[in-house]
């Protein structure tokens, strides 16, 4: 059961951000488009967790939406093992867990109906009694009581709601679950519960996760492989352990260094200045060059390609490790 489950190939997404037609014509402006995702390729191994990390504007959520089919790519494709390139997976084969457990459950539905909906969608199991039994089973699996099926979402805390969302995602028996910032709306003690639950479920059910997060510490605990995004481009892809012990891209180093850590009480430091530029008007060449401490003239004109897991002229020309 090992091998590649999902291959993402040169995925690209542009958004039209120009003003409404009449306003634009009257002002004599040109169409404006924003490249949220620019030529992103990576592969996700079966039974493992691949994490995408990045700050705002990195395009991580846009990539998730394209993979799950909520948004069509402008170019590139997503291929699932055993399917033709670009072909969609079977309904329910890919599921998603969302960031905000207060918005991801329909407030007017009973929990049992929410969890059963994917089963209704794929028509399996076909009869109601079997679906109800499966809902009870799923509720127990995520650490809730089967009696909770009768309640409404507002009767649960944020962490419990995220458990319900996980049960819903599992109900269509998917191989692959995309988790978009699954714990960033939760408190730390609850975050630990949810992360542990996700890990246990992965071990028991052989699930493959794509984890989207801005939190490096969370990613470190969950992921086998990590992709670092900056302004819509993948700047580094690496096995988790290596990424943290030997980061190669200067942006990866900046991110790791910026995380406030309990181990370093009262440390003084000189953080890297500057902020993520607007994706509407990104810098030429390597988009990170205005903030990069290692910048060389070539970075200003030529965008580095991802080779050997890193997209950086300086790292690539250094002796290979």
């Amino acid at each position: 059961m090992s091998g590649i489950l999902v291959t993402i190939d040169a995925l690209e997404r542009r958004f039209d951000v120009s003003k409404p037609w009449l306003e634009r014509v009257l002002a004599g402006e040109r169409r404006l488009s924003l490249k949220a995702v620019d030529g992103v390729s990576f592969a996700i191994r079966r039974g493992e967790t691949f994490a995408l990390v990045g700050e705002s504007g990195s395009g991580k959520s846009t990539i998730a939406k394209m993979i799950v089919g909520l948004l069509p790519p402008s170019a590139g494709r997503v291929t699932y093992a055993g399917r033709a390139p670009g072909e969609a997976p079977a309904a329910g084969g890919v599921q998603m867990i969302f960031q905000d457990p207060y918005a991801s459950l329909n407030p007017r539905w009973r929990v049992g109906d929410i969890i059963a909906e994917p089963m209704t969608a794929i028509g399996r199991p076909a009869d109601r009694a079997a679906r109800r039994a499966r809902v009870a089973e799923l509720l127990a699996l995520v650490g809730l009581s089967p009696r909770d099926a009768e309640k409404y979402p507002h009767q649960f805390s944020g962490g419990q709601r995220q458990r319900i969302a996980i049960a819903r995602a599992l109900s269509s028996e998917p191989d692959f679950i995309i988790c978009d910032e699954p714990t960033s709306a939760l408190d730390v003690s609850v975050q630990a519960q949810i992360l542990n639950l996700m890990r246990d479920l992965q071990d028991r059910l052989g699930l493959t996760y794509l984890l989207i997060s801005h939190n490096l510490a969370v990613v470190r605990h969950m992921a086998h492989q990590i992709g670092v995004l900056y302004l819509g481009r993948l700047v580094e892809v690496q096995e988790t352990e290596r990424l943290f012990t030997a980061p190669r891209h200067p942006y990866t180093r900046l991110l790791i260094d910026a995380v406030p850590d309990l181990a370093e009480i009262g440390r003084d430091r000189e953080p890297l200045q500057g902020e993520v530029p607007s994706p509407i008007d990104p810098p030429p060449g390597c988009t990170f060059h205005p903030r990069c401490p290692l910048v060389v003239p070539r970075c200003r004109s030529e965008a580095p390609l991802l080779r050997d897991g890193v997209a950086c002229h300086v790292a690539q020309s250094a002796a290979p490790t």
Partner: peptide, 26 residues
């Protein structure tokens, strides 16, 4: 724009089901 509607789209519920069963009550 809320995530519960996206969750229904992920499992490819037809548009009329999403409109009538998910959005209408809200």
């Amino acid at each position: 724009g809320k995530e519960y509607v996206q969750a229904a789209r992920v499992i490819r519920r037809p548009a009329f089901v999403i409109m009538l069963r998910h959005i209408l009550p809200n």
